[in-house]
Design a protein around this nucleic acid. Structure first.
Lengths: 243, 243
DNA sequence: GCTCGAATACTCGGGGACGGGTGATCGCTG
DNA sequence: CAGCGATCACCCGTCCCCGAGTATTCGAGC
């Protein structure tokens, strides 16, 4: 009971069984045929464990085992009533409620100051190229798929991701421009800070540009006491924040 | 060697140690102070295991154990030379190379046909509301943070996600409109398909709209035997899924 | 009729993430 | 000075994920 909604693959399984009973391998094939592995991560290891999980929670159940020719057995599953409810409930949640997702580009951006500005620009330009390539390939693949007769209804997620990629592309281009033109706020601080770090020195704190404490005002006193520790000389600022 | 680049939290650890030696708990505090937990998933369980992993691969090493007052011991780590290289290499990859990411909304969209169209619209509208709320809260939080003096350089990732959310918002609105106006291609098929599934019948195949086989042309012959809709034709089908 | 490759159907063991503990200490208050 | 809550610092058991492997069988071509 009260199962943790983890892997979306489980939802996909429920959705497939909503159409008709299937055995796991067939679920995988169907997902492939409909290009759903593009939007829902699929691999066999996960598939079978996810199916087991659903059985254990009573959301699906085995309806029989077939053997055809002398192929291995195939266990066919069907949706139970609780499973049907879970399917609608879970899917509703996914659609109606934006969830915090952590993308790796976001992670990269948030650590960007670690790189020297010039290097950052170079890498961002590389990203632009790659994004453009991906967009073209997507486009091509999409045309093929549509020609095969898959209706738009079954490809909305493509439109979504395509639009996101495009938006990202534009944004990155804009960022590059700002960096190139030098209109990006704090660029000089970036450079200085980076040089000192690379040299193995204590980096300058944010005081340099008006930043005072590493903590929001309300945390006030409580500070990770001994941060000064290692190399730096005795100084009045025991907690040079970024330092 | 040849370690698998998994959790971005590991990268964040490397980045922090690039500035100066720290003990794990301090890394966490620093990330919080800089609002990095917004873009890189942080929890203590992962942090300590990630640190262990980095030590095991020789990318960081313990430089000592401090005890201050009579607090518990704190093991302080520093970056090794291989660690420094890995840091730059990994970060470069994140920035320069777009990676396939699976978001849950994408998963939701790709299974959307499971819901009746009216319900889908309702849920999408809910999403619009929630997105707008989030955007406003972000905006507010951002203002506060900026007033605390965090420079733009340390908040680029916010600009990125904000822009993404905005783009999503617009897109969802557009989709809703199309569905409401009935200009969305295949809407009637959707309705029919859904009703039959709900009634426990075999859903109509895609032949109804010109789609022929579950597989792209080049797979040709090999078809997961029953995909064409067992219920419809006379049953020469040897493996009608359930009995 | 034989071989090669692709498809079928699943198994398994390692590894990593995660969340919920667990003490111990510090500061404040009555 | 006793008690209370907040903070500090870390550990551990569980669950879940995943990718590589395996054994079989069908079909196409020579």
């Amino acid at each position: 009971m009260a199962r943790r909604r983890g892997n979306p693959l489980a939802l996909a399984v429920l959705a497939l069984l909503f159409e008709r009973p299937m055995h796991p391998y067939e679920m995988a094939s169907t997902m492939r045929a409909r290009r759903k592995e593009e939007s829902i991560k699929l691999n066999y290891g996960s598939l079978y464990s996810v199916v087991d999980g659903l059985v254990k929670h009573g959301l699906i159940e085995a309806v029989g085992v077939l053997r055809e020719g002398r192929r291995p057995e195939r266990t066919v599953y069907e949706l139970t009533e609780p499973g049907r409810l879970e399917l609608f409930d879970w899917l509703s949640e996914l659609v109606s409620t934006p969830a915090r997702e952590y993308t790796s580009f976001e992670a990269g951006l948030s650590l960007l100051p670690v790189l020297p500005p010039e290097e950052a620009v170079r890498l961002l330009e590389e990203r632009v190229l790659r994004l453009e390539q991906h967009l073209h390939m997507d486009e091509a693949l999409r045309e093929v798929t549509v020609k095969q007769g898959l209706p738009r209804l079954l490809l909305i997620e493509w439109e979504y991701t395509r639009m996101l990629r495009r938006a990202e592309l534009d944004w990155v281009k804009g960022l590059i421009d700002e960096l190139r033109e030098g209109t990006f706020e704090g660029l000089d601080f970036w450079r200085v800070w980076h040089e000192r770090c690379s040299a193995g020195l204590e980096p300058p704190g944010l005081e340099a540009i008006g930043y005072v404490a590493g903590y929001p005002a309300d945390h006030g006193a409580a500070n990770s006491a001994g941060s000064a520790g290692a190399g730096s000389a005795g100084d009045d600022d025991p907690e040079a924040p970024i330092a």
